[in-house]
Amino acid sequence: MLNTGRTALARVAVQYAPHEHRPLQGYATALAAFGGLAATLTAAARLSGRPVPERPALADVALISIATHKLSRLLAKGAVTSPLRAPLTRYTGPAGAAELNEEVRDEGSTVRHSLGELITCPFCLGVWVATGLTGGLVLAPRLTRFAATALTATAVSDFLQLAYDAVKKAPDAAG
Rank of each mutant, 00 (worst) to 15 (best):
M1V: 08
N3K: 12
N3S: 15
T7Q: 15
L9A: 14
R11P: 00
Q15C: 04
E20C: 04
G26K: 02
G26Q: 03
Y27G: 02
A28M: 08
G35Q: 03
L37T: 09
A38Y: 07
A38M: 03
L41K: 10
A43Y: 13
R46D: 13
R46A: 15
S48W: 09
D60V: 11
S65A: 15
I66E: 10
T68Q: 03
H69S: 01
K70V: 02
L74A: 09
A76L: 03
G78L: 01
V80W: 11
S82H: 08
S82M: 03
P83Y: 05
L84F: 08
L84S: 01
P87A: 02
T89Y: 00
P94T: 05
E99W: 05
E99Q: 12
L100H: 02
N101W: 13
N101D: 12
V104A: 06
E107V: 08
S109D: 07
L115C: 02
E117T: 09
E117V: 08
P122S: 06
V127F: 15
V129M: 04
L137K: 07
P141F: 11
P141K: 12
A148Q: 09
A153P: 04
A155H: 13
D158P: 08
Q161F: 14
K168R: 15
K168L: 15
K169V: 05
A170S: 15
A174E: 12
